[in-house]
């Protein structure tokens, strides 16, 4: 078919309007998630359950020579739990997008004069805010069990920002899959991969005490780079270079996944051409 020629006098969506649209869609995303506890509650309870089991069964592992100095294993596991929760929860950004496509709500959006970018930004902003919520819940609950952030309030803020950026990583990746496939099931099938990425990393055990291929993979796993930087703030103290490493890796991955999601959105829109 012939190339589409756009009218130069066509009304365009202004930045302010696009921001308003993204804000409204982010609100929808957050409200929609909060109103479905079955979506976010397992993502909070499951990491807590794993942390509780690990602490009770392997609590003495902290005394192994080479294990970082911590008051309890729970201190060590806090960043892992946040990472695990956000990785699981962020997938809902993708499955919700796929559900919108499957039910026709996505068409409703496309038939309105909404900025196409706002659709994606709204969804990812929602995921990011939920990531902040998850980080705060974990710090509060683990705090009640005696975990203290060595880096103080600033470390807490850093963990919140880390969770928000990490939510963009997984949210962008999940949205990309959703936009490519239009299938919520395809997005949910990624769940085991996040599980593997998490367990072959330093999230639950220090890489220094690993051996063989497992250690080799874990030291190259970006999850390790992110978790180690975040953990430093909890068990050692505020360290901007460690924090920057954690956030930097997350930011690079988030940029890549958002670019991927945006490309998938454009590809889906092109399907209509």
């Amino acid at each position: 078919m012939s190339a589409v020629v756009l009218d130069p006098h066509e009304v365009h969506i202004g930045t302010r309007e696009a921001v308003e649209q993204a804000r409204a869609l982010a609100r929808r995303s957050i409200v929609g998630t909060i109103r479905q506890p079955q979506v976010w509650l397992p993502g909070l309870l499951f990491p807590m359950f794993i942390a509780a089991v690990n602490t009770s069964t392997m609590g003495r592992s902290t005394s192994i020579p080479g294990f970082p100095e911590v008051d309890s294993l729970l201190d060590f596991l806090l960043p892992a739990s946040i990472t695990q929760s956000v990785l699981f929860g962020g997938l809902s950004a993708g499955s919700d997008t796929a559900t919108d496509i499957q039910t026709g709500f996505f068409d409703r959006l496309l038939a309105s004069p909404v900025s196409r970018t706002s659709i994606l930004v709204g969804r990812l902003t929602g995921a990011s805010v939920m990531g902040a919520f998850q980080a705060i819940v974990f710090m509060a609950v683990y705090g009640a069990f005696g975990v203290r952030l060595a880096g103080g309030v600033a470390a807490g803020l850093l963990l919140v920002v880390y969770a928000m950026v990490l939510a963009l990583v997984i949210g962008g990746f999940a949205a990309m899959l959703a936009l490519r496939t239009g299938s919520a099931e395809a997005v949910q099938n990624v769940f085991p991969l996040t599980f593997i990425a998490l367990f072959i990393s330093s999230a639950f055990f220090p890489t220094e005490l690993m051996s063989g291929i497992y250690r080799s993979i874990a030291t190259r796993n970006p999850v390790t780079w992110m978790v180690d930087g975040a953990r430093h703030q909890v068990i050692v103290g505020l360290d901007w270079s460690e924090g920057a490493r954690s956030l930097g890796v997350a930011a690079v991955l988030a940029t890549l996944s958002i670019l991927g999601a945006n490309a998938a959105l454009r590809a889906r829109l092109r399907q209509a051409s």
């Binding site: 589409v4 020629v5 009304v11 969506i13 039910t103 026709g104 068409d107 038939a111 004069p113």
Partner: peptide
């Protein structure tokens, strides 16, 4: 509908098949 799609979208109301409405809102 192609060159001025944005203006079309501002001018029309659309109720597509299946009433795709977010059930949790």
């Amino acid at each position: 509908v192609v060159a001025q799609a944005g203006s079309v979208r501002r001018s029309i109301g659309v109720a597509l098949q299946d009433a795709a409405i977010d059930p949790v809102m």
